[in-house]
Design a protein around this nucleic acid. Structure first.
Lengths: 329, 329
DNA sequence: CTGAAAGCGCTTACAG
DNA sequence: CTGAAAGCGCTTACAG
């Protein structure tokens, strides 16, 4: 079924049919109604492909997901995808998914070179980001979910730094002095931001951080075990996990060592998730609205594609959830 | 840059240019070379949209992911997506992602009605699957990742049932008599299959299962805690988690209760993942190759689209990893 | 308010 | 081996 068949059937021109469907251009109510009832009847849907060719808009965007993401990040990306696809659908867009790594962006290049997308959403930012460089060079509209220093990049992000500053300073104000931090891959911008917020929190509280209690690039169980034991030996007041998975590993370690939270040790997380939500005791953490992040990134990209004005850097809010795990007994 | 510009520049017809690029039809080596060197020079890539319209093939497939998937399933889907997108790229296809739930398949309907895909991959099967019904009704080529009873559906799946049979019977042969099973949502076909395999394992070993030790639809920590305590009180020999997340919850519970694995209790999982991989002690489990599953589903769909003969039901193998958690001390 | 025609960027019989 | 032409299913100035 094409627009031609409909025109023939209804004894009008396909121009008119097109206008009835798109709502653009002058058309009488009666003919529009005739067309609409007919196409509903036969369940006609215009070919998005033909529309693309005629308008040179694909009505597609690409979502680029890091291929090497570990289980930590999955709830984040899942929720993100949900936010993106639901907002995209609302604006009549569809979403391609492609996986890239820090070194291999061929999945992204495919989408762009084949002219299959109007714009791209980058799910994670790296230091020295190849995807960003490629998209800028090829003048493809794109928005990053996550922050970057690269000039001129439109970015939407959780205010990780602000949240970490707030949570850290609150912990210090509560009287917890020796705060330890365990963090992941420091080439991920999000992790360096959280570290920055941690340090800012000390500044705000007027306390000098003990750098020896900060552990970045902690990957794998062995490293984690060792660090937690060290921290225990150093009798720190509180261990902060930079994300929910790290925090989870910390909690498991403490259980194994027979350390009770919060009696013997306080624990907090710079990111909340379902993983932590049902923990016993409940865990103090930062909470971000990831679905909203995905939606906002999507509308920002769509606005950018439409040539509308957009915020160069849009930082979404956070909540600080003070729970049992940092309660002073 | 279009095929027309190239033709003009090279003083040949666009037919010839098209032939040089596609490799179809007779063309002299010399002209092909001229064209190819030129398009490489200017970095030309044909418009996939225009090609789609001309050939009425989109070179796109849709991957349908369950929106209500919890964290349990994420590593599975991530790996699946990786397998699908990398295989698709190899065959020059791209992948749309859409999220659906058991009740709302509008994301899938969009893709199909807009004629944006040549076929669809269903990431999960449900009992009474709306997506399957819709795709069958609209004669859209599709392949399910996961099993279904619906007539005529092409399916690719891990041999969950076979694996569960094997693992269960091995445990019984080892002399573990009282096996308990904790499983998730029984409306997911994969879970009923695993339950079936568990029961088959008893049959194979010639043992009658104790139905009171089988707990399905276990969701949430409270339920889990209660069940584990019950099983402990009933002095079962071994607790099997139907998936890695359930197994993980079981292990956490046992640690909390001060029960040592495998000394005081054996534990096994019907699904392996990175979650379990680094556990101390190592956990006996079934291991499936999910990336291969994604790739196989993708090639099957592409074959189906091409009108090639495909297996109606393709069951991929499994490995049984007997590890420390079921060792008899 | 409506229509004929050109165009979007390709492919592919058909003819030579 | 090469090219002119029609066609894929739409949109959109332009003319009426």
């Amino acid at each position: 079924m094409t627009i031609d068949d409909i025109a023939r059937e209804l004894n009008i021109s396909k121009t008119t049919v097109s206008r009835a469907i798109s709502g653009k251009g002058r058309i009488s109510d009666s003919t529009r109604d005739r067309v609409m009832t007919y196409i509903n009847e036969i369940n006609y849907r215009p070919s998005a492909i033909a529309q693309s060719l005629a308008t040179s808009k694909t009505m597609n965007i690409g979502f680029v997901m890091p291929g090497e993401a570990d289980i930590v990040d999955m709830p984040f990306f899942q929720t993100c995808i949900w936010g993106i696809t639901s907002m995209a659908a609302r604006m009549d867009y569809d979403v391609f998914i492609s996986m890239v790594s820090a070194t291999d962006i061929s999945g992204l290049v495919r989408l762009v070179e084949n002219h299959k997308v109007d714009g791209v959403l980058l799910g994670r930012t790296y230091t020295n980001d190849k995807a960003i460089a490629y998209l800028q060079e090829n003048k493809v509209p794109f928005v990053t979910i996550g922050s970057t220093d690269v000039e001129g990049v439109i970015q939407v992000d959780n205010n990780d730094r602000g949240g970490c500053t707030e949570l850290t300073s609150l912990l210090l104000f509560k009287g917890l002095k020796k705060l330890a931090l365990i963090g992941g891959n420091s080439t991920h911008v999000v992790n360096t931001n959280r570290l920055g917020g941690f340090l800012d929190g000390f500044k705000r509280a007027g306390v000098t951080p003990d750098e020896s209690l900060i552990h970045m690039d902690v990957t794998g169980m062995y490293m984690m075990d060792k660090i937690v034991k060290d921290l225990l030996a150093q009798r720190v007041d509180c261990i902060i996990g930079m994300d929910d998975s790290i925090c989870n590993a910390i909690l498991t370690n403490l259980v194994r060592e027979g350390i009770y939270v919060p009696q013997d040790m306080k624990v907090a997380s710079f990111f909340n998730s379902s993983m932590l939500e049902h923990n016993q005791p409940s865990v103090t953490s930062l909470k971000f609205d990831v679905a909203k992040l995905g939606m906002t990134a999507c509308t920002t990209l769509l606005d950018l594609i439409d040539g509308k004005e957009v915020l160069p850097r849009n930082l979404l809010g956070y909540e600080v959830l003070m729970k049992e795990s940092t309660q002073i007994m």
